Simulated assay, not measured.
Amino acid sequence: MRRANPRSYDEYLKAYSMAMLPGRERENVSYGGKIIMPQSSLANLTNLDIESPWMFQLRNPTNPAASTHAGVLEFIAEEGVVHLPYWMMKTLRLNEGDPIRITGAELAKGKLVKLQAQSVHFLEISDPKAVLEQSLRNFSALTQGDIIEISYNSIVFGLLVMETKPGGAGINVVDTDLEVDFAAPLGYVEPERPKKAPPTTMASKLKIDLNSQSPGSSRPGSALSGGFAGTSTGATAVSKDGDHWESFKGKGETLNGRKTKGKGISHRKPEQVAEGSKIIHTDQHKIVSNSTLESEVKVPAALNLPYGQLFFGFNVATYVPPVVAPGSPQSGPQVDIHSFMPYNCD
C-alpha cells in the first residue's frame, strides 16, 4: 500500500516556548531540535499513514522568510498548542501565542554539517566533539542558516549551521553517519606564533660577548659585532656620504712587541676623473636615458655581395718598394705584394 505524501499534513497551532510547558524544565527539550505537539496531531499523522520518523517544516504565517525544520519529541501538549525550544522561537520571530504553520517534510539523510560557535568560550570545552555528538542526539533535523543552542555545564552555546550536505532546505540527522566540521568561533583571533630562537653558536655556549673587546688588547672586535674591526659598539664606521671611514683608533701591540696607535678618521676622497671619461665610479648613481644611448661611433656598413661571390678583403694600393742603389747593404730580394680581390666561385 502506497503511503501518503508527508506534505499532506498541514495545520496551524499556537506557538509557545518550552518554558510554558507544565512541569520541570528538561534540558534535552529546551536545548534541542524537537517540538512537543498535541494528541490530535498524532491522530492526524496516523490517519494519513505517514512514514516515521516524522519531520516538519515550521513557518511563520506573517513572515514566510522565517522557516526551519524540526522533529517531534512527544504528543503531550494542550490542544491547539505546540511547544518549541526558545532558539526556534527566535529563528521564526515568534512571540508567545503567535500562530505557526506546521507542514510535513521529507528530508534527505545528512552527510556533512559545518558549525561555527558564536562564542570563543566554546574552545574551553575539553572535548567539543564528544559534547556536540551527545547534544545532536536531541535533534532530528538541521537547517542551514539556523543558530541552534546546546547546553553544557549550565552554559548555553550558540552554533551557526554554516553548511549542510546535501544542500537544500534541511537534512535528516537521525540514524545517519554525519560528518561534523568546525569553523573558527566568531571573534576568534589567531594567536601570534613566537619567533624562532636564533641557532646556538659556540660563542653563546661559551658565553662570549662578540660586541665587546678586552681593554689593552690588540685583538680587534669580531666581524660579527656588526661594524668594522676595532670599532666600538654603536659607533658609526662609515659617514653618511661615504667619504671617510673610521679605522681602529685605540692602542695595541704588534706580534713583535711594537706599540701601535690607531689613525682615527681618514678623510681621503675618491680620485676625480675628467669630464667625458669612460670611468664610472660605483658611488655615483648611473641613470640611462635616450641621450646616453646616442654615440658617434661609426659602424661599418653591411656587405651585400651577389650570390656565390666571396669577400677576401678591401682594395689596397700596390706596394712599391723604394729604389735602392746597387751595392747598398739594404739591397736584397724584392717582394711583390698583390692586393686581395674578390674571388668569384662561379
Rank of each mutant, 00 (worst) to 15 (best):
E246C: 00
E294H: 08
G250L: 00
V288N: 07
V299A: 06
V297A: 02
E253N: 10
K263M: 11
A274D: 15
T292N: 07
G250Q: 02
Q272G: 08
E271Q: 08
P300G: 06
D283Q: 13
A302P: 12
R258L: 06
G250Y: 03
K298W: 11
A301D: 12
A301K: 14
T254R: 13
I287R: 07
E253D: 01
H267E: 07
F248L: 01
P270T: 01
H281V: 05
K263T: 09
A302S: 12
I265G: 01
P300N: 08
K286G: 02
E294N: 09
P270M: 05
E296L: 12
Q284L: 09
E296A: 11
S277R: 09
R268E: 02
G250N: 05
N290F: 01
G276Q: 09
I287N: 06
Q272P: 11
G262E: 01
I280N: 10
G252W: 00
K278Q: 13
G250V: 02
V288E: 06
K249Q: 05
I279A: 04
F248T: 05
F248M: 00
I287V: 10
E246Y: 04
V299F: 03
N256G: 03
K263E: 07
T260F: 00
R268L: 11
K278H: 13
T282Y: 15
S295P: 02
V288T: 12
E253R: 13
T260Q: 03
N256Q: 03
E271D: 12
E253A: 12
S295Y: 06
E246T: 06
L293W: 14
S266C: 03
I279G: 00
I287Q: 11
G257L: 10
T292W: 04
K278T: 15
G276S: 04
N290V: 12
G262L: 05
E246I: 10
L293F: 09
K261C: 05
K278A: 15
V273S: 02
K286E: 08
H267A: 05
Q272F: 07
T260E: 14
R268W: 09
K278E: 14
T260I: 14
S277G: 02
R258P: 03
K286C: 04
K298I: 11
V273A: 01
K263F: 08
K286R: 12
E246P: 03
K263V: 11
E275H: 04
S247P: 02
E253L: 14
H281L: 12
K251C: 00
S291G: 00
S289M: 05
K251G: 00
K259E: 13
H285G: 08
V297L: 13
K286V: 14
K261L: 02
S291H: 10
V273M: 01
G264V: 07
T260G: 03
G264S: 03
Q284F: 04
K259F: 11
E253G: 09
K278N: 15
I280Q: 08
E275D: 15
Q284Y: 07
I280W: 07
S277P: 14
N256T: 04
K251D: 12
G257N: 06
K286Q: 06
H281W: 15
G257Q: 15
G276C: 10
F248A: 01
E275F: 09
V288M: 04
S291P: 11
N290W: 07
N256I: 07
K263P: 03
E253W: 10
E271W: 05
